[in-house]
Simulated assay, not measured.
Amino acid sequence: MKAAVLYAPNEIRVEEIDIPVLESYEILVKVKATGICGSDLPRVLGEAAHHYPIVLGHEFAGVVDQIGSDVTRVKVGDRVVGVPLKACRQCDDCRSGNYAQCKQYSFIGSRVNGSWAEYVAIPEDNAILFGEDVSFEEAALVEPSAVALHALQLIQFQGGEHVAILGGGNIGLLVLQWARIWGAREVTVFDIDEQRLRTAQLLGADHVINSLNSGSEKEWKSITGGKGFGVVMETAGSDITMRQSFDLAANKAKVCFVGTPVRDLTFSHKQFELMNRKEFTLTGSWMSYSAPFPGKEWETTLHFLRKGQLNFKDIVFKRLDLDQINEAFDLYREPGAVKGKIMLLNR
């Protein structure tokens, strides 16, 4: 089969490798659409890969091509979303339904070969069936949508609050849509890229603020009546936006770090004191899982996709064939060139 194999930082080769041999509990998925995630960037452009060679890719959907001898729930020809986490299911965290905290986990597309290929092998339990009313491209974006929804569920978001979203990237735009579905009073998206802010407006943001503008602080204080935001969702993983979230938070707010930082983060004592003075709650959010595995985040995403209340199409920036994967990463090497999700298709 054709696969995009990472051999070293900045070295992806599209080549022929063996089709995976199935275990009895596994299925072979013919990949139709797969995304490039922000977490893939340091693996390709830096030195964050767990090992080499590796086929990355963990946001994907396709058609079941083969099934193992013990598979009973899935049949050849089914359309499926792939769930990348392979939790041990035996540790205390897994038994408590906290699969993302499993210390013995594996992960499709980072620890074992993933979906930047024509075929990928996954356990039967890691397949979610969907019908023809959802496209393969939309289905491949269920995983990042589940990440966004998981963060809101983690803070027990119930609507009625002014919500600030720091970062208008893919996860930020998905958090925006879920906050609106869940009844946010108003949603304000912060970013430094005007095109991303325009997309946020298209997807329903009540307000957008370019953080580089000198009047940005005056803007958000006007929006909130000087009180700050009751919910602050940091989705960029930037040291700047993580510090900014402390300023934006209202008294007794909920602040959630969804983005993954890529460098050391330092707060001044005055900034950190804001958490004490405001008594806001700060938490992180990791992946997209709950009990029963893989969690309601996944089926809920498919439900609202079918109802037409989630818009994935306007998040997609570019569609490329798998053969063109190095063209995609040439774009990532140009600061500010990528304005949304890049999808890789097997056509």
Rank of each mutant, 00 (worst) to 15 (best):
L320N: 03
A200E: 05
K103L: 12
N311L: 09
K313G: 02
G114N: 05
V147T: 14
V14E: 02
V5W: 07
R79A: 04
V338M: 01
G172T: 07
Y105S: 12
Q104L: 07
R43T: 04
A117G: 05
E11R: 14
G82E: 09
T241M: 11
K86I: 15
C94A: 11
G82S: 11
H50P: 06
R306D: 07
A61K: 05
Q271C: 00
L203C: 09
C88Q: 09
V74F: 07
A179S: 15
S211W: 06
H162T: 09
V71G: 04
V63A: 05
T300V: 10
W286V: 10
S135D: 10
D191T: 06
V63P: 02
N126R: 08
L274S: 07
V147M: 08
L197Y: 04
L345Y: 04
P294Y: 04
E124I: 12
Y7S: 11
S39A: 13
A48R: 14
I209T: 03
G295M: 08
L152T: 00
D314G: 01
M275W: 02
T300L: 15
L141M: 15
R89Y: 13
L320A: 03
R43F: 04
R43N: 13
A4Q: 11
H51S: 15
Y289K: 01
F257N: 04
N311R: 14
E132G: 04
K254C: 03
D40P: 03
Q244K: 11
H303F: 14
G82W: 13
R196M: 09
F130Q: 12
A151M: 11
D314A: 14
G284Q: 10
H150V: 06
A140K: 09
I315T: 13
H150E: 10
Q101Y: 13
E327K: 10
S288W: 02
K307Q: 15
A151G: 13
T301I: 11
